[in-house]
Nucleic acid binder design. Structure first.
Length: 472
RNA sequence: GUCCCCGUCGUCUAGAGGCCUAGGACGCUGGCCUUUCAAGCCGGCAACACGGGUUCGAAUCCCGUCGGGGACACCA
């Protein structure tokens, strides 16, 4: 069996797009599933838009998701360079080969000239083609020119067998003489991509369906160069709720790191995007090991999927409840700080907090909001909560329970008993007694069960907070 | 407009000719549990785009229509 080598080849023109993240994930899973190599390649040939900051942002996004690469920036590898701008000579050399073999030509037509022809063709209601356009001009190397690929002029078509879509073809006449090298000698996507996929011995190219049309040109290039083309797999697109392709401009959820800020666990996000376009029987939740074990292109769907924020939230809560508490606790720390925690974030207490709050929060932001009161001195009292539960009646009940609590240790049984007795004495429901305690110690109407809450706070702090509430 | 891809509940999907009276999940919804809020458990609503074929039999195969999306840069 030949080696599986797949790549993720983003262009560093901004943050890591969620669609890119899913493309990376599918490739990564395929590589891990088959014990192959996952390569990261930076396609930075768009000089006007590429920035080093973007490279870093993309690496950071991949690291956050845990998608490690075997070759690429920072780790190197035998097939580098992994930045396209570092191998311009190579592209020029290949372009020359194509010109020499008659598969490409130098073209000095300007954009304007081409546009003119396009309009003319439209006016004449005939299909516009690049046929013969500049092919016959002979140019010296010093006149400014681009290098164009010479698409076969005879009748015929290019086809490839897509791993998820099946056989797809396109007629030669529907493909234009696309540009290989710009007039500054820098390669365009379609060309750099082919040279690199060949040079890096990529066995399968997995990318979004928006690239299907460029695949035909690439197939032509592989053929002209006499190189064996890799396999291709085109993944369904991710659409926003407006059914348009998820774009950075229109959809905030397109920004991977936005989800980190929103308190989404990386594993939850992974689980969510892996199910957008892929399935394994009726399974909904997957550990990383399961994803790797089950993944295959045969179960990648063909239809675009719509972003579903509710399901992401559900998955996030699911994983907050099912991942080791220590892992969730570690992820919670920055959110607690952000929420205003001032006390020491001690690991054991953090884990207890996670255990107590994970059934009540869908995100780490929510968990921090509910949990920050356990990591502060005193409470920030919610006015509405106070008005509702710490009126005359509430305070009277609170005074009484506090007395009983102060007289015992804080075992769950004792706390239960104290509440029960007070409720019984006054012929009121348990809630009547419990709520004032809850509000007094947390400042909110929402918290875990009372004994759990008091335990989290510690006897001393809890009694002190009740005392403060009683003083008004 | 041209080319390419796609078309099962609102959404993500299972489904590779009989196992489908179409299954699961999110959401919505009724109930149980309950000291708050949740979580959990039990139940409900809800889909094969349409029209022709092929076949004893079609969500599954073929054709057409309609619908949706994508690509049409010296961007990737």
């Amino acid at each position: 069996m030949s080696t599986v080598r797949v790549r993720f080849a983003p262009s560093p023109t901004g943050y890591l797009h969620i669609g890119g993240a899913r493309t990376a994930l599918f490739n990564w899973l395929h590589a891990r599933n088959l014990k192959g190599q996952f390569i990261l390649r930076v396609e930075d040939t768009d000089q006007s838009r590429s920035t080093p900051e973007s490279v870093e942002a993309i690496l950071e996004g991949l690291r956050w998701l845990g998608l490690n690469w075997d070759e690429g920036p920072e780790v190197g590898g035998e097939y580098g360079p992994y930045f396209q701008m570092r191998k311009l000579e190579r592209y020029r050399e290949v372009a020359e080969t194509l010109i020499a073999s008659g598969h490409a030509y130098r073209c000095s037509c300007t954009k304007e000239e081409l546009e003119e022809r396009r309009l003319l063709a439209e006016k004449q209601k005939r299909l516009y083609r690049y046929e013969g356009l500049c092919r016959n001009k002979t140019l010296s190397r010093d006149t400014p020119h681009v290098v164009r690929f010479k698409v076969p002029q005879e009748a015929g078509s290019v086809c490839f067998l897509d791993e998820v879509l099946g056989r797809i073809c396109k007629q030669y006449s529907d493909i234009e003489d696309f540009i290989l090298l710009r007039n500054d000698g820098i390669p365009l996507y379609n060309f750099g991509c082919v040279v690199d996929d060949h040079d890096m011995a990529i066995s399968l190219v997995g990318r979004g369906q928006e690239h299907i049309n460029s695949t035909f040109g690439q197939m032509l290039l592989f053929e002209a160069l006499g190189w064996q083309a890799p396999k291709f797999a085109h993944f369904p697109l991710i659409l926003g709720q407006d059914r348009e392709k998820l774009s950075k401009r229109l959809h905030p959820e397109a920004d991977l790191m936005q989800h980190r800020k929103n308190g989404i666990l990386p594993h939850a996000l992974l689980n969510f995007i892996v199910r957008l376009g892929w399935s394994h029987q009726n399974d909904e939740t997957f550990s990383l090991q399961q994803m790797i074990e089950y993944f295959g292109f045969n179960h990648v769907g063909k239809t675009s999927g719509v972003w579903n924020p509710d399901k992401l939230l559900w998955l996030n809560q699911y994983w907050m409840k099912n991942l080791p508490p220590s892992e969730v606790a570690a992820a919670l720390i920055p959110f607690l700080k952000e929420a205003g925690a001032t006390e020491i974030l001690e690991p054991a207490k953090l884990e207890k907090t996670v255990l107590a709050l994970r059934e009540r929060s869908k995100t780490l932001v929510e968990m921090a909001r509910l949990g920050v009161c356990y990591f502060q001195k005193g409470v920030t009292m919610d006015a509405a909560a106070k008005a509702k539960h710490l009126g005359a009646e509430g305070l009277a009940l609170l005074r009484e329970v506090r007395e009983r609590l102060a007289a015992t240790d804080f075992s769950p049984a004792n706390i239960e008993a104290a509440i029960r007795e007070v409720a019984q004495t006054h012929q009121v429901g348990l809630g009547k007694v419990a709520q004032p305690i809850r509000v007094a110690v947390t400042g909110q109407t929402i918290s875990p069960g009372i004994s759990e809450t008091l335990d989290l706070l510690g006897r001393e702090e809890a009694l002190a907070r009740m005392q403060t509430a009683l003083k008004g």
